[in-house]
Amino acid sequence: MSDLGAGFGYLMKGQRWVAQHGRWFGFGLLPGLVTLVVYAGALIGLGYGADDFVGWATPFADDWSSPWQGILRTGLTALVFVFGLFLAVITFTAVTLLVGQPFYESLSEEVDRSEGGEVPESGLPLWQELWISARDSVRILLRVALYGIILFACGFIPVVGQTVVPAIGFCVSGFFLAEELTAVALQRRGMVLKDRLVLLRGRRLLVLGFGVPLVLSFLIPFVAVFLMPGAVAGATLLARDLVDPAPAPEPGSGPGPGTADSGDAPAPPAWSA
């Protein structure tokens, strides 16, 4: 269970890193702001249209007496919106990372640089990196959609559907959200999607400790945008330790060599302005 706390610690370290590197925080906000506008419109539309969709999908209940028709359709409307919100949490990160690929790639590299040691680079042209990210995101979203359908169906089970199913849904969302975020750093290290999933499943509690609190935070409007830069930074720190765990320091030893001072980080690249 200590891995849960350690995973949450990486999330906090990432937020602390961008707080100490203010220009990189502003640099990382731009893709999230663009994506937020699009998603806000989509969720508002879903909120207005979910009841009409449920009414269209349940014609058999047109002649039901009160209160049964209202109970059925109100419950289904809530489930449709929750399902949409569930997909939005996952796809928001995927779309934001895709839109902001150059931004977050530079941010992740700077985190590696500030922590010392090798700074891996993919060596691929931007168009190929975007293609790989888009392809992997689609594969992840297909997995999420499958889980979502199963959980949506299980939501009709009395008691379990209102307690256990939402908890599992948050865990599924947290795991795949963490995968999307760590992919920025792990792709630069030459890891394909299959290998990344194996790596993350090997430390499932650590990954959930990082991803689930982030999912819960993303449910608060606008919070996702402001947490994304720190989430990418924290995911990079998490990826570093998953791929190459740091050896335990000897008693009485000071900080290891190569640790850069947080104030020495260069400014974001000129094209980001």
Rank of each mutant, 00 (worst) to 15 (best):
W131T: 11
S262K: 11
D62R: 13
G190P: 08
T58F: 08
Y147W: 15
F92H: 14
T182G: 05
L72Q: 09
G5C: 02
G116P: 12
E110R: 13
G230C: 02
Y147F: 14
G258R: 11
C154L: 15
A246G: 13
P102F: 08
A233W: 05
L205I: 00
V164W: 02
F152T: 12
L177W: 03
Y39T: 11
G155E: 09
F103A: 13
Y39I: 06
S65P: 13
D261A: 10
L98F: 06
V95I: 14
R201I: 01
L107D: 13
V95T: 15
G202T: 06
F81S: 13
I220R: 08
L46P: 14
L98W: 14
G230L: 06
A231S: 04
P31F: 01
G32K: 03
R135Q: 10
T96M: 05
A265D: 10
F81P: 06
A233G: 09
K13L: 07
G161Q: 10
G100W: 07
V212I: 05
G7E: 02
E105N: 10
Q15T: 03
L142Y: 06
A265M: 12
A94N: 13
W68N: 09
L242H: 04
T163Y: 07
S137I: 07
W68F: 11
V95D: 12
T74N: 15
P255S: 11
Y104F: 09
G202M: 04
G47F: 02
G55R: 14
A50H: 09
P269A: 05
